[in-house]
Amino acid sequence: MTHSTDPVLTITVAVAAGGHVVVRPAGEVDAATAPELLAALLGACSPQLTVLEVDMAGVAFLDSAGISALLAGRARAAEHGARFTVSNVQPVVRRVLDVTGLSETFLD
């Protein structure tokens, strides 16, 4: 399922067995596109959700707006009793998570 067709950011959502949902943004997550990521994360939350995974392999840029979207998604997943995790981060994204002290919060 594709959520966004913005040329700067595309988002696909895959629902696996057992309530594991994988959100895959690809592109740049900034003040313009973070609302789309947030919408996808919130839309992925349901009573059946057990794990909300954000696969960041395709994300080449992340700023504070994107981090805020991740934090909000994590909070909503927690409301459903689900685990939230961020996977496959590129070095530039890892750097942003590291300097904000959020690597341990998001990464397994």
Binding site: D30, A31, F61, D63, S64, A65, V92, R95, V96
Partner: peptide, 16 residues
């Protein structure tokens, strides 16, 4: 390269 990436993030933040 890391410095350049840092600058990209920084200018994005102040401009935003």
């Amino acid at each position: 390269l890391q410095d350049i990436e840092d600058l990209r993030v920084a200018v994005d933040e102040v401009a935003a």
